[in-house]
Amino acid sequence: MPPDRDLVAFVSLSTELYGAELSLLSLCKGMPASIVAPMGPLLEHATAAGLDTREIVEAEILALKKIGQSRSPLEVGQAIWRGSQRLRAMAIWDKRAVISFSQWLNPALALAAFGKSTPLVLDMHDGPFSGPGRLVQRASVKLADRSIFVSQSNGRAVIGSERPSKHPVVHRPIEVPQSLVAAKATTAPQGPLRVIYVGRLDPEKRVHLLLQSAERVGFDHLSVTVVGESTATENMSATMAALHPKGSFLGSVGRHVALEHMSRSDVLVTPAQGEAFGRTVFEAALLGIPAVVDSSAAAAELIVDGVSGWVLGGKTPWTRLDDLLRTLAAEPQTVARVGSEARRRLGSLVDPDYVRAQYWAELPGNVEAVRA
């Protein structure tokens, strides 16, 4: 293990192992990284991977995860200040750099870093933000030494059209099991069009647009599988299943199971607006599955409409999804062609080795040269 002065401390409030955390572990693979987080799957996997780890137990820091809930501005400010004082006292400032890997940590770490010689980097992979949230994140970005955005649209949402060199864009590393890639490559679309949605079932994800469209098109022409659960409403998948009995609602499943269902699908539909990255779009692309995304989502910047996927919203309203699904159900060769192009164009952008080299080269002091 390198000495502390050569390590980069990634600080997170996550106790789970979702897409962002998987990307974090991939970014740190073989690199001089230290993971600082509460006890949970992220810290456990980091320890198992041989990374330097430190558990967050301080109540004032853990409380920062709640600042996004309904609180008065005064309470939010007090929570950020108390958290910043605890973060300032933590043994992380002897590292080569400190990276905030949680939107809730950004303002507190930005204050904690004031006057410190250790550079602070904000990893901006969250969004979209509310109006007040965007202002807080923008202030944090201005205080930090550098911010790394996950997409161009993510950057514009926080700092506007300005694109200074201290705010580079680096995508996330993504891998899918090669066994699923091989299985998908030998399976041509057949029968009804198999449509899938993977993600949270919260209102802002707008899954109802897909379900209503499927009802209008008719389940003689397609099937719909919904993988995921709501973080705000209990048993939302069961509620949706009662409203749309012809759909298949699997609830919350592990990532590998979700990818297995994705590999048996033909098209991914993600109607959410303003997605900061859109991990499932890239996972689908790696499997050769094209996606339908909203024009405001980050993935829309990288998709050529009708060539490597489809873009709805804006000048092409989501009511056009009906026609698109009917067309794709009747033209399996189009689905296969666009899926192949999605793999070629999007897959290379999230190659772990390529992204990891990009990311570490953007850190202050070019720590990419200091390997574990």
Rank of each mutant, 00 (worst) to 15 (best):
residue 83 G to A: 02
residue 6 D to R: 04
residue 370 V to R: 10
residue 163 R to M: 12
residue 194 R to I: 04
residue 348 S to E: 15
residue 158 V to A: 10
residue 71 R to S: 06
residue 147 S to K: 10
residue 283 E to W: 13
residue 147 S to V: 02
residue 270 T to N: 06
residue 34 S to P: 01
residue 103 Q to E: 13
residue 59 A to E: 15
residue 239 T to D: 09
residue 71 R to F: 10
residue 215 E to C: 05
residue 41 P to I: 02
residue 253 V to H: 01
residue 262 M to K: 03
residue 110 A to H: 04
residue 72 S to P: 00
residue 125 H to C: 05
residue 296 S to Q: 05
residue 99 I to T: 08
residue 237 S to M: 02
residue 269 V to G: 12
residue 145 D to H: 13
residue 165 S to D: 10
residue 18 Y to P: 00
residue 11 V to A: 01
residue 216 R to S: 13
residue 346 L to P: 15
residue 255 R to S: 08
residue 257 V to M: 09
residue 364 P to R: 05
residue 357 A to H: 11
residue 331 E to M: 11
residue 345 R to C: 03
residue 165 S to P: 00
residue 153 S to E: 11
residue 82 R to I: 03
residue 38 P to V: 04
residue 129 F to A: 02
residue 127 G to N: 02
residue 150 V to K: 03
residue 349 L to F: 11
residue 207 V to N: 05
residue 32 P to V: 05
residue 25 L to M: 10
residue 140 S to A: 13
residue 263 S to G: 11
residue 162 E to G: 01
residue 20 A to K: 04
residue 30 G to F: 08
residue 183 A to T: 02
residue 223 S to F: 06
residue 278 G to C: 09
residue 150 V to G: 13
residue 132 P to K: 12
residue 68 G to E: 13
residue 343 R to K: 15
residue 282 F to Q: 03
residue 69 Q to C: 03
residue 73 P to D: 08
residue 307 V to W: 10
residue 101 F to M: 05
residue 247 G to E: 04
residue 240 M to I: 13
